Simulated scan of single mutants.
Amino acid sequence: MKSFADLGGLVYSTESGRMCPDCRQPVAQCTCKQNKPLPTGDGIVRVSRETKGRGGKAVTLVKGVLVDEAALTQLGKQLKAACGSGGTVKDGVIEVQGDHVERVMAALQKLGHKVKRAGG
Rank of each mutant, 00 (worst) to 15 (best):
G8C: 15
G9T: 13
L10V: 13
L10W: 08
V11K: 09
V11T: 13
V11E: 13
Y12H: 13
Y12L: 10
T14W: 07
E15M: 03
S16T: 15
S16D: 14
G17W: 02
R18D: 15
M19L: 11
D22M: 14
C23Q: 13
Q25M: 15
Q29K: 13
Q29F: 11
Q29I: 10
Q29C: 05
C32E: 05
K33F: 10
Q34M: 06
K36H: 05
P37M: 02
L38P: 06
L38Q: 04
G41D: 04
D42S: 04
V45C: 09
R49F: 12
R49G: 14
E50W: 09
T51A: 02
G53N: 12
G55A: 07
G55F: 06
G55C: 00
V59Y: 06
V59D: 09
V59E: 08
K63F: 06
V67G: 01
A70E: 13
A71G: 10
L72D: 07
T73A: 13
K77T: 14
Q78C: 11
Q78E: 15
L79M: 10
K80L: 13
A81C: 08
A81F: 14
G84Q: 07
G84K: 00
G87F: 04
T88Y: 01
K90C: 00
K90S: 00
V93L: 00
I94H: 03
I94E: 03
E95V: 04
E95A: 05
V96K: 00
V96S: 01
H100D: 04
E102N: 03
R103P: 11
V104I: 14
A106K: 02
Q109N: 12
K110A: 15
L111P: 07
K114P: 08
K114G: 05
V115G: 03
V115P: 08
K116I: 03
K116F: 05
K116G: 02
A118F: 00
